[in-house]
Design a protein around this nucleic acid. Structure first.
Length: 662
DNA sequence: GACTACGTCTGT
DNA sequence: ACAGACGTAGTC
């Protein structure tokens, strides 16, 4: 055994090939095994690291396997076969899925599914693997011996397509699954409501219903009822409903609706423009009825209706009923603004908002300062629910506080004014801005989010933005975040957003770090994704930027921190809407910037040594052996290598655990 | 393109 | 655990 193997083993590749070929022919006894074994081996290896990038790899691999000889086939082959047999499909499929999807699903699965040490290695070491995978995408097909059938090709495209679908679908799914995602407005509301004790249950219902509504609404909403859609969908889709409700005159309301209702489509615009209040009133009542079932929503809708529809008695009556019930609850819940509440609906909502932590009010203040609806909308969007409170209660807000958020708010004002001032231009921009703001603000909410529900909701919200967030979330210190911020700031694509956001982001961001410090501690304290999520959210809020930004942004973080794993583990889990998180994360991986090789410490003796010994195998076989002289091999690198090898199991288990937990 | 070095895999 | 080898990435 040993005698033949030794020469074969270390023979030069060329020799190997030759010998192996011969051996392979000789050893055909195992042909049945060999072919699969070879294929599997090749596939395995190829999959793992080399994935047959170069023809060499593929050629060699098969060569090697036979080269090792029959015994290799027997022994290692069996073990390998086991692996390969058990894994190959999954591994291939997973990898393919990853590659194809880049973004999608695979990450969690792949590491988990691939129990093999190879996989584990890759998973743990995965960085390089990821990069490799990117490069190797094309090759895998060639490599995929298993897929000689057209399926291989088909699979790839499918995978790619799927991932894409996942992106969108993932978002949609997340939305569908969790209404919060579906509508920022809704999520925001939910958050704000989270503050309110009352509506949580109702909210849950509402959310579900909303989720359904959204889906249906997308198509039907416009047709059915402008009011309803405007209200319900408007809130959901964006702040538009809030804007309209915010008491902006019908004209603004219509405009806002148009803007915000963009989701609903032009129909609303037409209807609104033509029918404005009347249509809204007529429609809204119906919507209100439905909403009546949904308590929290109803409140907002009611408010909107009351303001707009002073005409429609029915609507008011219904609204009043609901309001009354809501009032009672709210009053019980909070008495702060209760005395003030002349407009039951509005003030009630306000009262509810006060329950929200101080951070909300500050935002509200600026908003309230400007009676303009846009501000409200903004605040609403930002705080989600706070809109009500803000809109309704300037006094409340004033009383409540104008605290640190002032910095953030001004930016918001700046954004809004444009909004109000030039409705024509930036409707979309406004939306975007609003959206961003909303995310930013949630950070504050995140604190509250510590509460389980709020967390879940916050997670849901953030999920869309999650991609960047995840990375940000990584345990990495504030430095990374700051850097990320800088990068984001620099990011030109978001110039608009950046302008509006950057200030708030930076301002918040740091504070977030500080604030998060507590949360961070939480994260560290409890690796559990739940806890981590809030911080993640905060980070995400910072990164808010669209996917493109996320990707770039995230890359850096990972590469720099090198903690990608930790973040990775935490992130996907934390992002319950897993799909999005995973997607974003994966997307990030492939895109991630070129990653530096592990740099040696440069301090250890070996690193300091600049002369090769010339005696070690590396020196002697420098051409074949690409490794650095043993004497020059960095100690730390050695350690890492060993530690990584040794501890691979642990980290994997940890990651898996985190993933599972998540 | 060549060199160097890292990461990974395989075999002993 | 060690050694050998390969592929790849980074740098010049």
């Amino acid at each position: 055994m040993s005698a033949p193997t030794k020469p074969n083993r270390r023979q030069t590749p060329a020799q190997r090939k030759k010998t192996q070929r011969g051996t392979s022919i000789k050893g055909q006894t195992c042909n049945s095994q060999k072919t699969p074994a070879e294929s599997t081996r090749s596939s395995v290896r190829t999959n793992q690291a080399k994935s047959g990038r170069s023809p060499r790899g593929t050629g060699k691999d098969p060569g090697r396997s036979p080269g090792s000889g029959s015994h290799a086939v027997n022994v290692t082959g069996s073990a390998r076969l086991r692996r390969s047999s058990s894994l190959p499909d999954s591994s291939l499929g997973q990898r393919k899925s990853q590659r194809g999807s880049r973004v999608c699903v695979a990450p969690c699965q792949s590491p988990k599914a691939c129990t093999g040490r190879k996989n584990s290695r890759k998973g743990s070491s995965g960085k390089g693997a990821a990069s490799r995978q990117q490069n190797t995408r094309n090759k895998p097909s060639s490599i995929s011996i298993n897929n000689p059938s057209p399926g291989g090709k088909n699979e790839k495209p499918d995978n790619k397509e799927n991932p894409r679908c996942y992106h969108e679908d993932g978002v949609e799914d997340a939305a569908s699954l969790e209404p919060n995602d579906a509508t920022e407005g809704s999520s925001l509301k939910a958050d704000t409501q989270g503050g309110n004790v009352q509506t949580e249950d109702e909210k849950s219902f509402n959310n579900d219903n909303e989720g359904d509504l959204k889906q249906t609404a997308g198509a039907a909403s416009c047709d059915d009822s402008d009011g309803q859609l405007g209200d319900g969908s408007g809130d959901r889709t964006s702040d538009s409903s809030e804007l309209t409700s915010s008491g902006s005159p019908g004209a603004q309301g219509s405009r806002d609706k148009n803007d915000t209702s963009s989701v609903c489509g032009n129909e609303l615009d037409h209807l609104v423009s033509s029918g404005k209040q009347d249509d809204g009133s007529t429609f809204q009542p119906d919507g209100v009825k439905e909403l009546a079932l949904k308590a929290s929503r109803t409140d907002e809708s009611v408010l909107i209706v009351t303001e707009k529809d002073g005409e429609s008695l029915d609507a008011e009556t219904k609204v009043e009923r609901q309001d009354e019930t809501m009032r009672e609850k709210e009053e019980i819940a909070v008495t702060l603004c209760s005395g003030e509440s002349e407009d039951t609906g509005e003030k009630e909502t306000q009262t509810s908002t006060p329950t929200c932590p101080t951070p909300d009010p500050p935002q509200c203040n600026p908003l309230t300062a400007q009676p303009g609806s846009p501000l409200r909308v903004f605040s609403n969007a930002a705080t989600s629910n706070p809109t009500k409170a803000l809109s309704a209660s300037n006094s409340c807000v004033l009383e409540v506080v104008s605290q640190a958020n002032t910095d953030f708010q001004p930016t918001v004002h700046g954004a809004k004014p444009q909004h109000a001032g030039s409705l024509t231009i930036p409707d979309a921009a406004l939306k975007v801005q609003t959206v961003i703001v909303t995310r930013n603000t949630p950070v504050i909410i995140c604190r509250e989010s510590l509460q389980p529900r709020s967390l879940g909701e916050s997670d849901l919200r953030e999920t869309p933005a999650a991609g960047g967030e995840k990375q940000a979330c990584t345990p990495s210190e504030t430095k990374d975040k700051r850097e990320l911020h800088k990068k984001e700031m620099s990011f030109s694509s978001f110039s608009l957003l950046a302008e509006s956001n950057t200030k708030p982001l930076t301002g918040k961001h740091e504070p977030n770090h500080i604030v998060d410090g507590g949360q961070v501690a939480m994260q560290e304290h409890d690796p559990v994704p739940k806890i981590s999520t809030p911080s993640v959210d905060s980070s995400s809020t910072l990164s808010c930027s669209s996917e493109s930004t996320r990707s770039s942004f995230s890359f850096d973080t990972e590469s720099e921190t090198g903690c990608g794993d930790a973040s990775y583990s935490a992130l996907p889990g934390s992002w319950g809407p897993e799909g999005t998180g995973l997607l974003s994360y994966q997307t990030l991986k492939p895109q991630r910037k070129e990653r530096k090789k592990r740099s040696r410490c440069g301090a250890c003796e070996p690193c300091l040594r600049k002369i090769n010994c010339g005696q070690c195998s590396c020196c002697l076989n420098r051409r074949t052996g690409h490794q650095i002289c043993k004497l020059r091999k960095c100690v730390e690198l050695k350690r890492r290598g060993h530690s990584s090898l040794i501890s691979r199991c642990d980290p994997q288990s940890l990651q898996v655990g985190t993933l599972e937990v998540s």
